[in-house]
């Protein structure tokens, strides 16, 4: 198995958001995961960013009122 390169905090933080967005290639992802496992500071940072992202997602959830659904259905009925 190929040995994973060891990266430092600066490199890890540079790629952290792309990692959380699931946008990192597998090699970079492994490097970052390995760094996070051994670095307490970056581990906490990753946990923090992840939680903030989840909270944002939840805050963005909206329930459509019955009136909009009705309006859209009426609109589509006319086509």
């Amino acid at each position: 198995m190929k040995k994973t390169k060891t990266i430092g905090c600066e490199e890890a933080l540079k790629h952290l958001l792309a990692y959380l967005d699931q946008e990192l290639g597998s090699a970079k992802r492994r490097e970052l995961e390995q760094h996070i496992e051994i670095c307490r500071s970056c581990f906490s940072r990753a946990e923090f960013e992840k939680l903030l992202k989840t909270q944002l997602r939840e805050a963005g959830r909206e329930m459509v009122g019955a009136s909009l659904e009705k309006r859209i259905k009426t609109l589509l009925g006319r086509f």
Binding site: R61, E62, V64, G65, L68, I72, K73
Partner: peptide, 29 residues
């Protein structure tokens, strides 16, 4: 209809109020 909640959620953050968000979704559809 399956995407309505998501479209409306995004519209709410873009135009920042319910009425305009509903109009934006209707115009989009």
């Amino acid at each position: 209809i399956g995407l309505l909640d998501q479209l409306f959620g995004a519209a709410m953050r873009l135009v920042k109020n319910r009425e305009d968000a509903e109009d934006l979704v209707a115009e989009t559809v």
